[in-house]
């Protein structure tokens, strides 16, 4: 099995775990978790040099989930990497769990930053990338933003700072699924054109037509590495709720949990996709 087929198999498993976690917790954010699966798999399986041995160290590549509500996706990917057991995923959002609703770096090893308040994660990623520049460390910093998150002014403060300090060791993704809690991003508070805004702020911009195509995501990550002197953003068009028919392109599934029946249907659909 080649790498792409292998990752596609992981993607099915990650999606199934996202649905199971949110169903078990009776809360959480399935829509934006399902849209960002390929991005996180590409980062954790083909880009970052994270392992059991260096997981506690900052002497490695790191990832900040700036759209901190998409923990179901992040925890599931960490489980695929073998950093936590699959059964622990079902403790998500429960009392005494290491798997907080939004990432808490002091609770779970392998989480590189505590996030959840939108707009702050990218700034912390800028701090990490700046530190690597200051101390001449070769490690890269990855971060994932939501498109709705780009309505936060702080995203642009961070964008300004990253370009100002020439942080070419920083790679940001925007999960451009087009929907936020209250509906279509262009109707709630239009953040577009996101690509042109980052370009104007001095970033190298890569547009990705299909951010759910794992091969294309990996290619974009490789292309980003070639850019010197500027941070890179990959604006990836994705499908919110990807892989579950009744969740796809539906803002209603931003922060809602499916019923047991809906969960069963979703898992069946996802298994079908694996064939």
């Amino acid at each position: 099995m080649n790498q792409v087929q292998d990752l596609q198999k992981h993607a099915v498993n990650v999606r199934k775990n996202i649905v199971k976690m949110v169903t078990a917790a009776k809360s959480g954010h399935p829509g934006g978790s399902l849209s960002s699966v390929e991005i996180l798999l590409a980062i954790y399986f083909t880009q970052m040099n994270i392992s059991e041995e260096n997981i506690h160290s900052c002497e490695r590549d790191r990832f900040v989930l700036s759209k901190g509500h998409c923990t179901p996706c992040l925890y599931s990917v960490l489980a695929e990497k073998g950093f936590l057991k699959e059964e622990e995923l079902l403790t998500f959002r429960q009392i005494n769990s290491r798997l907080q609703g939004h990432p808490s770096m002091r609770k779970l090893e392998g989480l590189d930053m505590s996030t959840g308040s939108l707009g702050q994660g990218i700034s912390t990623a800028v701090g990490m990338a700046l530190s690597n520049k200051i101390h001449k460390k070769p490690y890269r910093i990855y971060t994932l933003l939501g498109d709705g998150e780009c309505e936060e002014g702080q995203v642009w403060e961070a964008a300004m700072a990253a370009a100002h300090y020439h942080l070419d060791n920083l790679l940001a993704f925007v999960d451009f699924n087009g929907l936020q809690i209250d509906g279509d991003v262009t109707k709630v508070m239009n953040p577009t054109p996101i690509d042109k805004k980052f370009e104007a702020f001095g970033w190298n911009v890569i547009m990705l037509k299909d951010g759910n195509d794992i091969e294309a995501v990996i290619r974009a990550c490789e292309e980003a590495k070639k850019c010197e002197g500027k941070p890179t953003v990959i604006v990836a068009k994705t499908v919110k709720g990807k892989g579950v028919s009744f969740m796809e392109n539906n803002a209603g599934w931003h922060g809602n949990a499916p019923s047991e029946e809906q969960c069963a249907q979703a898992l069946e659909e996802l298994d079908g996709g694996a064939k």
Binding site: C58, V64, M113, S123, A125, S131, Q154, E157, A161
Partner: peptide, 18 residues
């Protein structure tokens, strides 16, 4: 620059790097 919110979160990222 005149961007205190970003400055504090950048500080957090620097601190998380030792």
């Amino acid at each position: 620059g005149i961007a205190e919110g970003n400055m504090m979160a950048v500080a957090a990222g620097l601190a998380a790097s030792g």
